[in-house]
């Protein structure tokens, strides 16, 4: 499995990551090696095997749909990069 630079750029975009231009081919090389390692799985027949999502095959625990948390917006926003009037600020999206 060999990824070229354009595929690496596509994956970086999917993952919302900027990768420096000069590093792209290093990533292509390393990611290709990782996919080669992973490729070993394909030789194993698994048609009749049920996928395992949870080590104990337990289902997601459900709870009653009621409010259990208290509002701590101000407390949690203390660690935010930029807030105003309780809102998170980001660059303008709509002109």
């Amino acid at each position: 499995m060999s990824l070229d630079n354009s595929e690496v750029k596509r994956i970086a975009h999917l993952a919302r990551l900027v990768i420096d231009e000069q590093d792209i081919s290093i990533y292509a090389h390393n990611l290709s090696n990782i996919l080669d390692l992973v490729e070993q799985m394909s030789s194993v027949p698994t048609d009749d095997v049920a996928p395992m999502a949870h080590p104990l095959d337990t289902l997601q625990r459900l709870r009653e749909d009621k409010v259990t948390e208290t509002n701590q917006r101000d407390h949690f926003q203390l660690v935010a990069p930029q807030v105003e009037n309780g809102l998170y600020l980001v660059p303008r999206v709509i002109e």
Binding site: L17, V18, D20, Y27, L31
Partner: peptide
Amino acid sequence: RGEGFGPEVKRRIMVGA
């Protein structure tokens, strides 16, 4: 994300993506 994460984390995120 590109500046905040180091190379190994970026590699794994990309393999996963």
